[in-house]
Design a protein around this nucleic acid. Sequence first.
DNA 1: CAATGAACGAACTGGCTAGTTAGTTGTACT
DNA 2: AGTACAACTAACTAGCCAGTTCGTTCATTG
Lengths: 224, 224
Amino acid sequence: MGAPPSNAAPTDRTLGSPERQRDAERTRAEILDVATSEFADKGYSGARVDEIAAKTSTTKRMIYYYFGGKEQLYVATLERAYTVIRSIEQAVDVEHLDPVDAIRQLAELTFDHHESHPDFIRLVSIENIHRAEHIATSSTLSSLANPALDVLARILERGRTAGHFRDDVDALDVHMMISAFCVFRTANRHTFKAIFDRDMLDPARREHYRRMLGDMVLEYLTAR
Amino acid sequence: MGAPPSNAAPTDRTLGSPERQRDAERTRAEILDVATSEFADKGYSGARVDEIAAKTSTTKRMIYYYFGGKEQLYVATLERAYTVIRSIEQAVDVEHLDPVDAIRQLAELTFDHHESHPDFIRLVSIENIHRAEHIATSSTLSSLANPALDVLARILERGRTAGHFRDDVDALDVHMMISAFCVFRTANRHTFKAIFDRDMLDPARREHYRRMLGDMVLEYLTAR
DNA sequence: CAATGAACGAACTGGCTAGTTAGTTGTACT
DNA sequence: AGTACAACTAACTAGCCAGTTCGTTCATTG
């Protein structure tokens, strides 16, 4: 039973053939995919290595073969999640806009990113529960600066010299202000709904919150 | 060894005697205290019943005796944490101030509360990882409205009729805006520090952030 | 084609951990 | 003084779960 091994020419399958059974990269990636959703779903202690393996087309042994252990798998998961987000942020192009429009666009981009990456937000929340001890020990992660920050800094500088923006905040403060709004909306969605009976992610309210964020940041920056 | 049992008159120790050994309320409260810090520290799955028992002057059996199980203990922990916070919020008195001052004071009060109750914030984060399933099933918790919200609604109303405040947000939106800022600052402290190397809870920056929050909310509300 | 090493799988193990059992001791009331 | 019940304890158990053992299969290279 099973696929006959003499189907395709063996010498042709060196790279990229779709029906190859042994593929380290594919196996690694599949484990990472499953691990991401499992860790995001249950947290680090809540996730089970057996469960991750079961949702994979491979076995638990492979997790230890490729990653070494549960904790290293978790760190690898974090590293990939951050890398993906950062590569998206690389693509930001708002430097051609005037400062006010640029800030609003940047805020709305962040808003959209957060909404479309709930797993990432959950992983970050989980990592904060663990006091970021895994990020701290990962050399890949602790040196991963945010490229969007430089963009933000330049916009702020332009807005300040034009006399439109206040000068008692730096880029990191503004970034924090935007992140706080976006992260809270996703990360605290469930308790907020349970206690106040309002779903902050209801599509009907999406535009309202998106505008609210832009207004909030800009009214603050352009005050007086 | 141990305290002699014939020390104080037994009939006098019915209430509030300090040297009684058997005290259901005290034991219950002690378990809750330890459980709060353990759950806040390690999360629900990360916390260990044995560990909680060990940090208590009583035993694991007592946890099952009084609470029934790990999950019920966790719910009881959440219930008490929320009750404490809500009782603090009851004491808010800003209705005598004009709307602008009242909003700033309310925001700063929230800021201070969050800063002085990190365990509460952590419990809320943890509960959100679990999609608020425990709050949802607790009748005590899901019916626990926020008294500060009514206060906020009345201030907003006064500010609007005076023509100072915008009218496209309700009290819950403003509450969310304030909470987002305060919660993010505490809850995401560790990843923020690891990645941007800035401690949002550094006392040297406290006043800056406190003013930033008030400015942000007020500039937004009084825009145009 | 043999040999070598990477990729894979099933079954196992030992420590851990939520929950239980089977009792003992203190307190209130009569 | 005796009884009933609440408060309490130590030791146990069954199941879970991260990590391992040991063996097999596939693909490449000489």
